[in-house]
C-alpha cells in the first residue's frame, strides 16, 4: 500500500500451503472450507450434546438454525421437502460459515471464487435434474414444453426454456460470488484509503477518519450480506427443487 497503489484483488490470490500438500493444490481456500465444515460440525455436535429440554445458548442456536432451514424446506418445496432437508441444510451452513469466516481479518473467503460457487451451483442443478428425472421419469422433459402454445412455435420455445433452465448455473453462482467479492474489494479499497490518507500529513487525517468510519459500517454490511446470500442460495435451491418435484 505504501507505494500508493490500491491492490484490491491480491487478497483473492491462492497460495500453496503445508509444503507437500501445497504442491497438490492445497491452499487457503480448501483450508477455510475444512474450517467451515469443522466449525459447523462442532457447533451442531457440541450444541446438541446436552439434549436438554430447556436448551442452553449453543443448543438454542443449533435448534434455531435447524428449524429455520427445516421450515424453509417444507414451506418452499412442500411435504417432500423433508427428503431434501439434509442437502439444503448442509449447503446453507457451508456457505453461511464460509461467508462469515471471510469477514475476519486474514481469513480467506472461499465463496469469493467463482470456481467454488459454480461447483456448488453445479451440484444443485445436477441434483434438481436427477430428482426431476427420478420422480417423473421421461415426463420430466415436459417441463421444457410450455403448454397452450401452437405446435409450430415449439422448436423455438423449447430451446429458450432449456436455456432459461441452464441460466440458473450462472445466475446462482455469480450472485453469491459477486456479492462476496464486491464486499471484500470495497473493504480493501477503503482500508487502503485509510493508510494512504493517514500517511499524507495532517490534511489527510480527517478523510482518513471518514474512510475508517465507512469501513466500520461496511463490516456490518458485510455481515448482513454474508447471512443474506447464504439464505438466498438456500432458498433458490429450494425453489429449484420445488420445480423439479412439482414440475410446475
Amino acid at each position: 500500500m505504501a507505494a500508493g497503489k490500491i491492490d484490491a484483488l491480491s487478497q483473492f490470490a491462492l497460495h500453496p500451503m503445508f509444503g507437500e500438500l501445497g504442491q497438490m493444490g492445497f491452499s487457503q481456500s480448501p483450508l477455510m472450507m475444512a474450517v467451515a465444515a469443522g466449525l459447523t460440525l462442532l457447533i451442531l455436535g457440541v450444541g446438541m450434546a446436552p439434549r436438554a429440554m430447556v436448551p442452553g445458548r449453543l443448543q438454542a442456536a443449533a435448534e434455531l438454525l435447524y428449524e429455520f432451514v427445516h421450515n424453509m424446506c417444507i414451506e418452499t418445496i412442500g411435504e417432500e421437502g423433508r427428503r431434501f432437508f439434509p442437502f439444503v441444510f448442509t449447503l446453507f451452513l457451508f456457505i453461511l460459515f464460509g461467508n462469515l469466516l471471510g469477514v475476519f481479518p486474514y481469513f480467506f473467503t472461499f465463496t469469493s471464487h467463482i470456481a467454488v460457487t459454480l461447483a456448488l451451483t453445479l451440484a444443485v442443478v445436477v441434483l434438481t435434474t436427477v430428482v426431476g428425472l427420478a420422480i417423473h421419469k421421461l415426463h420430466f422433459f415436459s417441463y421444457f414444453v410450455p403448454h397452450g402454445v401452437p405446435k409450430a412455435l415449439l422448436p423455438l420455445l423449447v430451446p429458450i426454456e432449456i436455456l432459461s433452465y441452464l441460466s440458473r448455473l450462472i445466475s446462482l453462482s455469480v450472485r453469491l460470488f459477486a456479492n462476496m467479492m464486491a464486499g471484500h474489494v470495497m473493504l480493501e479499497v477503503f482500508g487502503a484509503f485509510v493508510i494512504m490518507l493517514g500517511g499524507a500529513g495532517w490534511l489527510g487525517l480527517l478523510p482518513a477518519g471518514l474512510a475508517l468510519g465507512i469501513n466500520t459500517i461496511l463490516i456490518g454490511f458485510e455481515l448482513l450480506v454474508a447471512v443474506l446470500q447464504a439464505y438466498v442460495f438456500a432458498i433458490l435451491t429450494c425453489i429449484y427443487l420445488h420445480d423439479a418435484v412439482h414440475l410446475h
Binding site: 414451506e75 418452499t76 417441463y143 410450455p146 403448454h147 397452450g148 402454445v149 426454456e161 450472485r175 456479492n179 450480506v225 443474506l228 446470500q229 438466498v232 432458498i235 433458490l236 429450494c238 425453489i239 420445488h242 420445480d243 414440475l247 410446475h248
Partner: peptide, 15 residues
C-alpha cells in the same frame, strides 16, 4: 396466466 408459468414463489430477496 396462460403460457409457461412456473412462477417462483416464496421470499427471494436476492441482491
Amino acid at each position: 396466466a396462460p403460457g409457461p408459468d412456473r412462477r417462483r414463489t416464496g421470499p427471494d430477496p436476492g441482491r
